[in-house]
Simulated scan of single mutants.
Amino acid sequence: MRTEQDPVPRSSGYNRKAAWLTGGLLFLIASGMVGLLTGGDQGVVAGQPHLARVEIEGPILQAEPLVRLLEEARKREATKGVLLRVDSPGGGVGASQALYEAVERLSTEKPVAVSLGSMGASGGYMAALGGDRLFALDSTLAGSIGVIMMSSGVYPLLEDVGIEPRIIKSGKLKDAGTPLREMTGADRAYLQSLVDELHDHFVTMVAEERDLTESEVRELADGRLFSGRQAAANGLVDAVGGKAAAEAWLREEAGVSSGAPIEELEPPREWLDSLLPLGMVRWTGWLMAPEPRFRYQHSGAVAR
């Protein structure tokens, strides 16, 4: 006696196909996103002699991500030289010096060509000093050798609205620079001495790296910017030229052919953090904090 089996629903086959297609599509999308976020392999085969390119762009808020990239380039045997692209107005004192030290450490083992973009100022210029040869465009704004520390007083406004700040501190200079009270003469003298010491350190660094006398650097280190040609004439950069000139010099110095690839080394992009309010708070806090920094401070005017 024949037993009739229940037929398999036709829709189940379609469901399995749809699941496979959906899973495959999600995998491709995820792979594409990873490729975008990591920047890809730039066509560099493992072990193949190549150059690396690292960019210091925008205000220098922290050094660690870029320091890791520079260390990675230093340790890779196949990386024969590094093209460092700097387009920055500077930033924090500690972060700027940390980048300089990482670049200098790299340059003791491999040639480093530095290409300054539209701006290589203050802490950005400091980081560039660690390279072996500095290139600037005619229109590059370079230099701004100096230290700036800003503080705004909000205490008059607080008094107007009836708010009385109450500060408990361990020493009279513990809150020097606070916006909650008027700056005293002792506060100003203390903060000025700190800025002067950091400035002296910057001047000494430029003199040593650029083979200039300290007096020559001090004539240039009043915070002003120089065009690329002025910077070259003053000895702050080695040559006037763009990325192509820097790359050509680097290939010759590193002994690699014109066909050797260049690998882009990029830190993980913290794009989500920059979109969230936390990122905005961190950025605003860095701008408003009363601390010294190697940063070019412009008046807000724009070229027309």
Rank of each mutant, 00 (worst) to 15 (best):
F226S: 04
M205G: 02
Q192V: 13
A231T: 07
R224Y: 12
T204N: 06
E182V: 07
L220T: 01
G177Q: 10
E208P: 02
G228A: 06
R166F: 01
K172M: 13
I163Y: 03
D222Q: 13
A244P: 00
T140V: 09
F202S: 00
L194E: 05
S227Q: 08
Y190F: 15
T204F: 03
T184V: 11
E159D: 15
D187I: 08
G171Q: 09
I145W: 06
Y155W: 15
V240R: 04
G162I: 03
I168S: 07
L198E: 09
A207T: 09
D196K: 13
T204S: 11
A189F: 12
G146N: 01
R218F: 10
T178L: 11
I163N: 00
F226E: 01
V161L: 08
K243S: 07
E159H: 13
L198I: 11
A231S: 11
A221K: 04
L191N: 00
A244K: 14
T213H: 09
S227E: 08
L212N: 03
M150E: 13
D222E: 15
D238V: 05
L173Y: 13
A176T: 06
S215A: 14
E164N: 04
A246I: 03
T140N: 05
G223L: 10
D138P: 07
D211R: 14
K172A: 15
L173H: 10
L212G: 00
E209H: 12
E209T: 08
L198A: 04
N234P: 00
Y190W: 13
V154Q: 05
P165F: 06
S227D: 08
V195W: 05
P179V: 03
L180R: 01
V237H: 04
H199V: 04
E208Y: 06
H201C: 00
D211G: 10
G228T: 08
L158G: 06
G162H: 07
D238K: 06
Q192G: 05
E159M: 10
G146Y: 00
V237L: 10
G223N: 09
A232R: 12
E159S: 14
D175G: 05
S139V: 02
D187S: 10
R188F: 12
S215R: 13
P165L: 04
S193W: 06
S170C: 00
I168T: 11
A239K: 13
I145R: 03
V206T: 05
V147H: 03
T213G: 15
Y190N: 04
L194T: 03
K174Q: 15
T204I: 05
P179W: 04
P165D: 04
A246G: 05
V203N: 00
L137N: 01
D222L: 14
K243P: 01
G228Q: 10
E159V: 10
F202T: 01
S151I: 07
D200G: 13
P165W: 02
R229K: 10
K174M: 14
D196V: 08
V147A: 05
L198H: 12
D196R: 13
A245D: 12
M150A: 11
L236K: 02
H199F: 08
